Amino acid sequence: MQKIETDRLILRNFSVTDAQGLLEYSAHPRVNCFLDDKMSTLEEAALRVQERSNDDSYIAVCLKDSNALIGELYYVKEEQDTYAVCWNFNARFEGKGYASESVKAFFKYLFIQKGARRLYAYVEDDNYRSQKLCERAGMRKEGYFLEFISFTKYEDGTPKYENTFQYALLKKEWIKQQHSK
Protein backbone atom coordinates (compact mmCIF):
# COMPACT_ATOMS: atom_id res chain seq x y z
CA MET A 1 0.00 0.00 0.00
CA GLN A 2 1.11 3.52 -0.65
CA LYS A 3 1.89 5.46 2.53
CA ILE A 4 -0.86 7.88 3.65
CA GLU A 5 -0.08 10.95 5.74
CA THR A 6 -2.53 12.92 7.85
CA ASP A 7 -1.77 15.95 10.02
CA ARG A 8 -0.28 13.84 12.83
CA LEU A 9 -0.14 10.26 11.53
CA ILE A 10 1.34 7.96 8.94
CA LEU A 11 -0.66 4.98 7.68
CA ARG A 12 1.64 2.40 6.09
CA ASN A 13 2.45 -1.28 5.80
CA PHE A 14 3.80 -2.95 8.92
CA SER A 15 7.58 -3.15 9.27
CA VAL A 16 9.93 -5.15 11.50
CA THR A 17 10.33 -2.15 13.82
CA ASP A 18 6.65 -2.43 14.81
CA ALA A 19 6.89 -5.62 16.89
CA GLN A 20 7.19 -3.92 20.29
CA GLY A 21 4.29 -1.57 19.55
CA LEU A 22 2.09 -4.44 18.37
CA LEU A 23 2.91 -6.46 21.47
CA GLU A 24 2.03 -3.53 23.71
CA TYR A 25 -1.63 -3.40 22.62
CA SER A 26 -2.04 -7.08 21.69
CA ALA A 27 -0.83 -8.55 24.98
CA HIS A 28 -4.01 -7.52 26.79
CA PRO A 29 -6.95 -7.26 24.37
CA ARG A 30 -9.60 -4.89 25.70
CA VAL A 31 -12.44 -6.31 23.61
CA ASN A 32 -13.25 -9.98 23.11
CA CYS A 33 -13.04 -9.89 19.32
CA PHE A 34 -9.23 -9.51 19.64
CA LEU A 35 -8.71 -12.49 21.96
CA ASP A 36 -7.52 -14.64 19.03
CA ASP A 37 -4.85 -12.00 18.29
CA LYS A 38 -3.50 -12.03 21.85
CA MET A 39 0.24 -12.52 22.09
CA SER A 40 2.60 -12.60 25.03
CA THR A 41 6.14 -12.50 23.62
CA LEU A 42 8.13 -10.20 21.40
CA GLU A 43 8.90 -13.21 19.17
CA GLU A 44 5.18 -13.76 18.53
CA ALA A 45 4.77 -10.07 17.73
CA ALA A 46 7.77 -10.16 15.35
CA LEU A 47 6.23 -13.10 13.46
CA ARG A 48 2.87 -11.35 13.24
CA VAL A 49 4.51 -8.14 12.01
CA GLN A 50 6.40 -10.09 9.37
CA GLU A 51 3.14 -11.66 8.13
CA ARG A 52 1.36 -8.31 8.09
CA SER A 53 4.19 -6.51 6.31
CA ASN A 54 3.29 -8.41 3.13
CA ASP A 55 -0.48 -7.94 3.50
CA ASP A 56 -1.91 -4.60 2.34
CA SER A 57 -5.17 -5.27 4.21
CA TYR A 58 -3.35 -4.60 7.53
CA ILE A 59 -2.36 -0.97 7.93
CA ALA A 60 -0.05 0.27 10.67
CA VAL A 61 -1.07 3.58 12.29
CA CYS A 62 2.02 5.48 13.41
CA LEU A 63 2.78 8.85 14.94
CA LYS A 64 4.27 11.10 12.28
CA ASP A 65 6.92 12.62 14.56
CA SER A 66 8.35 9.33 15.91
CA ASN A 67 7.03 6.58 13.59
CA ALA A 68 5.83 4.77 16.75
CA LEU A 69 3.06 2.22 16.14
CA ILE A 70 -0.11 3.20 18.03
CA GLY A 71 -2.64 0.90 16.37
CA GLU A 72 -3.85 -0.76 13.24
CA LEU A 73 -6.62 -0.69 10.71
CA TYR A 74 -7.64 -3.56 8.49
CA TYR A 75 -10.18 -4.57 5.94
CA VAL A 76 -11.64 -7.68 4.41
CA LYS A 77 -12.91 -7.38 0.85
CA GLU A 78 -16.13 -9.36 0.79
CA GLU A 79 -17.73 -8.62 -2.52
CA GLN A 80 -16.43 -6.71 -5.50
CA ASP A 81 -17.09 -3.39 -3.79
CA THR A 82 -17.94 -4.16 -0.13
CA TYR A 83 -15.39 -4.09 2.67
CA ALA A 84 -15.62 -5.07 6.32
CA VAL A 85 -13.44 -2.72 8.39
CA CYS A 86 -11.91 -2.98 11.83
CA TRP A 87 -9.36 -1.27 14.06
CA ASN A 88 -7.36 -1.86 17.20
CA PHE A 89 -5.53 0.91 19.09
CA ASN A 90 -3.16 1.17 22.01
CA ALA A 91 -5.07 2.47 25.06
CA ARG A 92 -2.15 4.77 25.95
CA PHE A 93 -3.03 6.98 23.00
CA GLU A 94 -6.80 7.28 23.58
CA GLY A 95 -8.54 10.60 23.81
CA LYS A 96 -6.25 12.42 21.38
CA GLY A 97 -8.30 11.95 18.20
CA TYR A 98 -5.76 9.65 16.54
CA ALA A 99 -8.26 6.84 15.89
CA SER A 100 -10.74 9.22 14.30
CA GLU A 101 -8.05 10.89 12.19
CA SER A 102 -6.74 7.55 10.93
CA VAL A 103 -10.17 6.01 10.27
CA LYS A 104 -11.26 8.99 8.18
CA ALA A 105 -8.09 8.67 6.06
CA PHE A 106 -8.64 4.90 5.88
CA PHE A 107 -12.19 5.34 4.59
CA LYS A 108 -10.99 7.83 1.96
CA TYR A 109 -8.38 5.30 0.84
CA LEU A 110 -10.97 2.51 0.58
CA PHE A 111 -13.52 4.62 -1.30
CA ILE A 112 -11.10 6.38 -3.66
CA GLN A 113 -8.15 3.99 -4.14
CA LYS A 114 -9.83 0.61 -3.64
CA GLY A 115 -13.18 1.47 -5.28
CA ALA A 116 -15.34 0.56 -2.30
CA ARG A 117 -19.06 1.19 -2.59
CA ARG A 118 -19.94 0.09 0.94
CA LEU A 119 -18.03 -0.22 4.22
CA TYR A 120 -19.34 -1.87 7.34
CA ALA A 121 -18.13 -2.70 10.84
CA TYR A 122 -19.33 -4.96 13.64
CA VAL A 123 -19.03 -3.53 17.15
CA GLU A 124 -19.90 -5.25 20.42
CA ASP A 125 -22.65 -3.47 22.34
CA ASP A 126 -20.33 -2.77 25.29
CA ASN A 127 -17.53 -1.29 23.14
CA TYR A 128 -18.65 2.33 23.47
CA ARG A 129 -15.40 3.86 22.18
CA SER A 130 -15.64 1.96 18.91
CA GLN A 131 -19.31 2.84 18.53
CA LYS A 132 -18.46 6.54 18.91
CA LEU A 133 -15.60 6.15 16.45
CA CYS A 134 -17.98 4.70 13.85
CA GLU A 135 -20.30 7.65 14.35
CA ARG A 136 -17.48 10.23 14.13
CA ALA A 137 -16.37 8.57 10.88
CA GLY A 138 -19.85 9.13 9.42
CA MET A 139 -21.17 5.58 9.72
CA ARG A 140 -24.78 4.92 10.61
CA LYS A 141 -26.07 2.22 12.90
CA GLU A 142 -27.63 -0.33 10.57
CA GLY A 143 -28.50 -3.30 12.76
CA TYR A 144 -28.35 -4.95 16.15
CA PHE A 145 -27.74 -8.67 16.49
CA LEU A 146 -28.53 -10.45 19.76
CA GLU A 147 -26.08 -13.17 20.80
CA PHE A 148 -24.38 -12.79 17.42
CA ILE A 149 -20.97 -14.39 17.92
CA SER A 150 -18.83 -15.92 20.66
CA PHE A 151 -15.16 -15.08 21.19
CA THR A 152 -14.85 -16.40 24.73
CA LYS A 153 -16.48 -18.71 27.27
CA TYR A 154 -18.01 -18.39 30.70
CA GLU A 155 -16.30 -20.09 33.65
CA ASP A 156 -18.51 -23.16 33.16
CA GLY A 157 -17.20 -23.58 29.60
CA THR A 158 -20.34 -22.43 27.76
CA PRO A 159 -19.91 -19.85 25.01
CA LYS A 160 -20.42 -16.19 25.87
CA TYR A 161 -22.28 -14.66 22.93
CA GLU A 162 -21.83 -10.99 22.13
CA ASN A 163 -24.65 -8.61 21.26
CA THR A 164 -23.32 -6.73 18.26
CA PHE A 165 -24.14 -3.56 16.34
CA GLN A 166 -23.52 -3.23 12.62
CA TYR A 167 -22.48 0.17 11.31
CA ALA A 168 -22.22 1.00 7.62
CA LEU A 169 -21.35 3.78 5.20
CA LEU A 170 -22.05 3.96 1.47
CA LYS A 171 -19.72 5.84 -0.84
CA LYS A 172 -22.53 8.18 -1.89
CA GLU A 173 -23.18 9.00 1.80
CA TRP A 174 -19.47 9.60 2.34
CA ILE A 175 -19.26 11.92 -0.69
CA LYS A 176 -22.25 13.89 0.56
CA GLN A 177 -20.59 14.25 3.98
CA GLN A 178 -17.36 15.50 2.35
CA HIS A 179 -19.27 18.19 0.47
CA SER A 180 -21.13 19.36 3.57
CA LYS A 181 -17.91 20.11 5.51
Rank of each mutant, 00 (worst) to 15 (best):
A99W: 01
S66D: 11
Q178C: 09
A19P: 00
A91S: 13
S150D: 08
V123C: 01
R136V: 07
E78H: 11
V123W: 00
F93A: 15
C33S: 15
T82I: 06
D126F: 11
K64I: 14
M39F: 10
N127C: 13
F93P: 02
S26V: 01
A60K: 03
A99V: 08
L73M: 13
I112G: 05
Q20F: 06
G115E: 04
A45S: 08
D156F: 01
D56H: 10
E44Q: 15
N163A: 08
S130M: 14
Y98T: 04
F93R: 12
V76R: 15
V123Y: 02
L23K: 11
R117M: 14
E173V: 09
Q166Y: 03
N13G: 13
E124A: 14
Y109A: 07
Y74Q: 15
H28I: 06
E94R: 13
K38C: 09
L22N: 05
A68W: 13
S150G: 11
N54A: 13
M39S: 05
N90M: 07
N32R: 14
Q113M: 10
V61K: 07
K181G: 02
N32A: 15
W174K: 01
E124V: 05
Q80L: 05
S26W: 03
W87H: 12
R30E: 15
N67R: 14
I10N: 00
F34Y: 12
T6S: 07
Y74D: 12
N88Q: 09
D125V: 05
F34A: 12
V31C: 01
F148G: 01
Y74P: 08
E101I: 14
